[in-house]
Simulated assay, not measured.
Amino acid sequence: MPHKSLPAPSWPISFRATCLRATFYILLVAGIAQGVFYESLYLSDARFSERGFTELAQTALLATAAGLLLYSHLVIRTLPYISLLMFGFLFASLIREQDALLDTYLFDGAWQLLVSLTVLPILFVVIRKRQRFLAEFAAYANSFSFGLFAAGFLTTYVFSRLYGRGDFWQAILQENYVRDFKSAAEEVVELFGYAVLLIAVIELVLLARRWALARQNG
Rank of each mutant, 00 (worst) to 15 (best):
M1W: 11
M1Q: 06
H3Y: 03
A8S: 07
W11K: 07
W11I: 12
S14E: 02
S14N: 00
F15Y: 10
T18L: 12
R21K: 12
R21G: 10
R21D: 06
A22F: 06
F24G: 15
I26R: 00
L27K: 07
L28N: 04
V29P: 00
A33G: 08
V36F: 01
V36S: 02
F37V: 15
E39T: 00
S40K: 14
S40H: 11
L41R: 12
L41T: 01
S44D: 05
D45F: 09
F48I: 01
G52D: 06
F53D: 10
A57C: 13
Q58L: 05
Q58I: 05
T59I: 12
T59R: 15
L61C: 03
T64N: 05
A65M: 12
Y71G: 11
S72P: 14
H73T: 13
L74K: 15
V75R: 15
R77P: 02
P80W: 06
Y81G: 01
Y81E: 11
I82K: 03
I82Y: 07
L85R: 05
M86N: 13
M86G: 04
G88Y: 11
G88V: 04
F89I: 09
L90Y: 09
A92V: 00
S93M: 03
L94P: 01
E97A: 00
D99N: 02
D99K: 08
T104Y: 09
F107E: 07
F107P: 02
A110N: 12
W111N: 15
Q112W: 02
Q112N: 12
V115H: 07
F124D: 09
V125Y: 10
V126E: 01
I127G: 04
R128T: 02
Q131T: 13
F133H: 06
L134I: 05
L134K: 13
L134W: 09
L134M: 14
E136Y: 12
N142W: 14
F144Y: 12
L148H: 13
F149K: 15
L154A: 08
T155W: 04
Y157L: 09
Y157D: 06
L162H: 11
Y163W: 07
R165I: 01
G166A: 14
D167G: 13
F168W: 11
F168C: 02
W169E: 09
L173N: 09
Q174S: 08
N176L: 13
V178K: 11
D180Q: 10
E187M: 03
V188K: 01
V188I: 14
V188M: 08
V189C: 09
V189D: 06
V189L: 11
L191H: 07
L191I: 01
G193L: 00
L198K: 13
L198W: 04
V201N: 00
V201Y: 03
E203S: 14
E203H: 09
E203Q: 13
E203R: 11
L204K: 05
L207C: 09
L207P: 05
A208K: 03
R209Q: 15
A212V: 06
A212C: 01
L213T: 04
A214H: 07
N217F: 08
G218N: 10
G218P: 00
